[in-house]
Nucleic acid binder design. Structure first.
Length: 325
DNA sequence: GGTAGACCTGGACGC
DNA sequence: GCGTCCAGGTCTACC
């Protein structure tokens, strides 16, 4: 008999909207079940891997969330599971926090957009970001699926292996990552990231995720530490900043450039476009990334329908910038 | 500080 | 079915 947990989210929280709000919701081991309206995935817990399905039975904003696990969880594991779920669903961002964003950018008040889905751990967010660099989206989907299947651990639910832990990634041979996970030249960088995030014997990891998450630390300092990590350049660091809840800067990639040209109507050289993009989002200050992202996301939804209806293995996998031109 | 080229994968295209 | 070209961000060497 598996454990069932009840979680009270912020009063404006709507599961479908707030999970299907960032591309990572279609990356393994995440799976948004369109028909059941459930987020299913695996988690690494102190006693081993577990699969979980999260629903919001009432479908009312702020309605209680139900998390059903495929095995029984002891009290300490329940606490850890709740912590990971809260990170993933951004439950720490209160209705007041989202209202503050909507005061700065009124365009998203009606839909309630404000929270961006992320991973249960910073390590998974960092690796997912590395898999999104220098590839088209379908390759990112493939890399994450293979990392889970090849390096992750099985759970009691078929098709839901875990995302690799830092320790497991650190021990994985680069040849395995390249040949079986098809991560290409990112292989060595992923192993190095695993080593940085993994505990060193009885010592804590060289990188402390809590330091990056601590709002007391300045955005500039955090950004500089991120950009020093292997495989992390300006775009990746900018993206990890928003995944850390730091929305004061953009993460400009080719998709941003496409958006600037096709939707905002800007023209010019790459450098000129960067300046125009920065100027366009400057009025949104500390919420800059959110304004950029939901502008882009609503464009995607106009093209492909509400994100809550995107099926991981068809619509979402085929989603590429070239199809949006 | 700025720039060119290598790094890989997979999709598109032509034959 | 095969070969070629190209897109995509980071890193290194060089100016």
């Amino acid at each position: 008999m598996g454990t069932r947990l009840s979680i009270v989210p912020p009063e404006d929280y709507r599961l479908g909207r707030d999970v299907c709000s960032y591309g990572y919701f279609v990356l393994w081991p995440n799976h948004w079940d369109v028909d059941r309206r459930a987020l299913t995935r695996s988690l690494e817990l102190p006693e081993g891997p577990a699969a979980v399905g999260i629903t919001q039975p009432s479908e009312i904003p702020g309605g209680k969330l139900t998390a059903r696990f495929d095995r029984a969880l002891a009290r300490p594991e329940q606490a850890e599971a709740k912590r990971q779920i809260a990170r993933m669903l951004r439950l720490s961002e209160s209705a007041d926090d989202i209202a503050a964003f909507h005061r700065v950018d009124k365009r998203f008040k009606k839909t309630g957009h404000g929270r961006l889905f992320r991973s249960p751990t910073l390590f998974e967010d960092v690796i997912k970001t590395v898999t999104s660099c220098n590839v088209a989206w379908p390759s990112t989907v493939n890399m994450n699926q293979r990392l889970c299947e090849v390096v992750g651990r099985k759970t009691g639910l078929d098709g839901f292996p875990t995302f690799p832990t830092p320790a497991k990634m650190a021990r994985t041979r680069v040849g395995t990552l390249r040949a079986r996970c098809r991560v290409g030249y990112r292989d060595q960088r992923m192993v190095e990231l695993g080593k940085l995030f993994a505990p060193r014997g009885k010592k804590p990891p060289e990188l402390d995720p809590e330091w990056f998450e601590d709002p007391a630390n300045d955005d500039e300092v955090v950004f500089k530490r991120l950009i020093d990590l292997p495989g992390i350049g300006p775009y990746a660091a900018g993206n990890i900043m928003q995944l850390l809840g730091r929305y004061s800067r953009l993460a400009i990639d080719t998709e941003t450039i496409r958006h600037a040209k096709n939707v905002l109507g800007y023209a010019g050289t790459e450098r000129e476009l960067h300046k125009k993009i920065e100027a366009h989002y400057e009025p949104f200050g500390a919420h800059k990334f959110r304004s950029y992202w939901f502008e882009l996301w609503e464009f995607y939804e106009q093209k492909a329908g509400p994100a809550e209806t995107w099926r991981r293995d068809s619509v979402a996998r085929a989603f590429t910038a070239s199809q949006l031109k």
